[in-house]
């Protein structure tokens, strides 16, 4: 009998601690599949965030370092510059990337650091219990915006991918989601392309994943998936936001560190 579905080799045999319907576990698996397919497990270093994914080293069987909240891209910069021939990726949430670590992320992107960022946007602080995130929707109720997010008080949801796409240092940026089998396949393609982008030395690549958080959204998993389509993706439109062609110039050391 032919095996059609198995645990990726770069995943440990542990059971996810994530809530039912959470997008993290799907994103983890997609990344692990891509690592296997590209055959980069041995040269890969992952940088983990503070947030629900802080324990991702329990699932990924690759070298991993845990960064302080928001500092992933700085830590990844240090690793990548020290070891330019390794593949380095940063796993970040919306609070991590777009709030406390916006400076580190923005500047790593602007320097065109040859790293890959997988950005999980679930419009809420998950691990700390559902507080307002920089990407929370206007009107979204959270534990720190009990009356709903108000632009006058709390500003607007930050469109990280669009903002970063304006930086000349970024090479490939796509926004995906993982709320249906089709969108999951698309997300995997995007992740694979982002890693390939780094392997080809094209500079900063980022995949934003709109990810369900049923627990903190106070919805069922199915309602959560629907909310991504009906609400979230209106503010955060899906698709390729930036895709620069490969640098062909010989001897171009722009991203070699």
């Amino acid at each position: 009998m032919k095996k059609v579905f198995e645990r990726p080799k770069s995943m440990k045999k542990n059971i996810f601690h994530y809530c039912a319907g959470c997008g993290h576990s799907i994103a983890h698996r997609l990344i692990a599949e891509v690592i296997d397919e590209l055959g980069i497990r041995g040269v890969l270093i992952g940088v983990l965030p503070a947030g629900c994914a802080v324990l991702a080293y329990n699932y990924f069987d690759v070298d991993m370092i845990e960064a302080q909240h928001g500092r992933g891209p700085a830590t990844a910069t240090g690793i990548k510059r020290a070891l330019p021939d390794r593949v380095v990726f940063c796993y970040q949430g919306d609070g991590d990337l777009a709030a406390i670590g916006i400076a580190e992320s923005f500047h790593a992107a602007n320097r065109g650091e040859n790293i890959t960022v997988v950005f999980i946007n679930n419009a809420v602080y998950g691990m700390t219990g559902g507080q307002m995130a920089p990407t929370s929707m206007l009107g979204q109720r959270t534990t720190t915006s009990p009356g709903g997010r108000k632009s006058l008080l709390d500003g607007y949801p930050i469109q990280v991918s669009e903002v970063f796409s304006l930086l000349p240092g970024t090479s490939y940026i796509e926004r995906c989601t993982v709320n249906s089998p089709a969108s999951i396949l698309k997300a995997k393609k995007a992740i694979r392309k982002a890693f390939q982008c780094q392997i080809d030395g094209r500079g900063f690549s980022l995949v934003e994943i709109l990810s369900p958080c049923p627990t903190n959204w106070k919805m069922t998993p199915i309602e959560s998936c629907r909310w991504i389509d009906e609400v979230m993706s209106k503010t955060f439109p899906l698709g390729v936001i930036k895709d620069l062609p490969e640098i062909k110039k010989k001897g171009d050391k722009r991203h070699d560190g």
Binding site: I45, R71, A74, T75, G78, I79, R81, E104
Partner: peptide, 12 residues
């Protein structure tokens, strides 16, 4: 950022 870059390089 500087000290966290140092962390990365040191880890490497």
């Amino acid at each position: 950022a500087a000290i966290h870059m140092v962390i990365g390089a040191s880890a490497a």
